[in-house]
Amino acid sequence: MPTVNSVTVSEANGLTFLNINNEKASAKVSLFGGHILSFIPKGDNKERLWVSPHAYLNGERPIRGGIPICWPWFGDDHGREKGTLPSHGYLRTQMWKLAHSEDTVDGTKIELQPSFTRAEGFEFDCKVTLIIEVGNELSLSLITENTGVVPFDYNCALHTYFHVDHIENTRLKGIDGDYKDKVDDFKVKATPVPYVIDSETDRIHLNPIAHATIEVNDQDVTRVDSVGNDSLVVWNPWQGAASISDMDAFGYKHMLCVESAITQGKTLSPGEQHMLTQRVIPQ
């Protein structure tokens, strides 16, 4: 696994990690799941991502926190009975490989590829690549290419868990339009103003929001840019966290998921590719 100077490799509990450290930021990536676990800009040295202290970091389960990769479906939207196929697809529970790494003027760039893309529930020929760029900002691009001879449909998401000092002092800006409320039987509702989180929240905002910001105490600001999405998902389990086995009962106070997603279906013709990008930009 050849790497550039800014990338070192470590192992723990049977998993392999890529540790990125350059002049602009540090980051940590698990090859199990192609999963980013940490992003700390050197400017303020604040961790921008949240990982549960009870997360499974041994390959037994998907990792709770960081940035899970949801593909080729989002949630249980796979057309089968709930529970018959893994939630959010199967890329987040397989080993990925490092295909390329390079140091650039903007920081560090790596390319990862999963072990396989064809499995029960998605039996089409395609290639998936995850490009991660670590610098003053964190950029992820999930590229899906149809390498077969028939079209296929899929959904996906960059399911980012952001660290916040306290959810009750957090608000979102830049999000508008209608959303599906998964907590209330998928009813379609208007985005609240101001956008605060004060109860269990699981919303699929049904438009391609390009710029959103997370503000804590009106000072600590993280901008979330999305390209190639048709939705933006906002999730916090609130007190329901107590029923999640790999999450602390009070963990909801320090995290907020803002996810760049395709939830309304994307069709790729043979030879066509699509890129879903999320940029995490400290302000």
Rank of each mutant, 00 (worst) to 15 (best):
D77E: 08
K97C: 12
G66E: 02
G107A: 01
F152L: 13
M247I: 09
R64A: 14
T3N: 08
I209K: 00
T267P: 14
G33L: 13
L256V: 10
T144V: 14
I175T: 00
F17E: 07
G59Y: 05
I244Q: 02
D230S: 08
T160N: 01
E123L: 04
A119Q: 13
A119D: 13
V193G: 06
I132H: 09
D198A: 05
M255C: 01
L15S: 00
H78N: 15
A249V: 14
I281W: 01
M255A: 02
Y161T: 02
T117K: 13
K42V: 13
Q239I: 07
K109A: 01
S10L: 06
F122L: 15
S87A: 04
N146I: 11
P208C: 04
P72K: 08
V216Y: 11
N236D: 01
K173V: 02
W73A: 12
Q239N: 06
Y56F: 13
D176W: 01
E215N: 15
Q264F: 10
P192W: 09
D185Y: 09
D185K: 08
D44C: 09
T117Y: 04
S269G: 04
T144S: 08
I20T: 03
D153N: 15
F116S: 03
L31N: 09
K28W: 05
A212V: 10
G228Q: 10
S139A: 06
V164E: 03
Q283H: 10
V4M: 09
R203Q: 12
H163C: 07
G107W: 01
H159D: 01
Y195K: 13
K46H: 09
L140I: 10
Q219D: 14
L98Q: 12
G65C: 02
S87H: 11
I143N: 11
L206E: 05
I20M: 01
I40E: 02
V216M: 10
V183Q: 12
V150A: 07
I143S: 10
T147D: 12
H100G: 09
L85F: 06
H166M: 12
L31K: 07
R279S: 04
I67N: 03
E120V: 09
R61L: 11
G135H: 00
L37D: 14
L130G: 00
F124P: 05
V149K: 15
G14N: 13
P208H: 06
A241Q: 00
F186R: 04
F186D: 02
R80V: 14
G107H: 00
I132N: 11
F17V: 11
I209A: 01
Q273F: 01
P208E: 02
A157K: 02
S30H: 04
G265H: 15
D248F: 03
N21D: 11
R118Q: 14
Q264A: 14
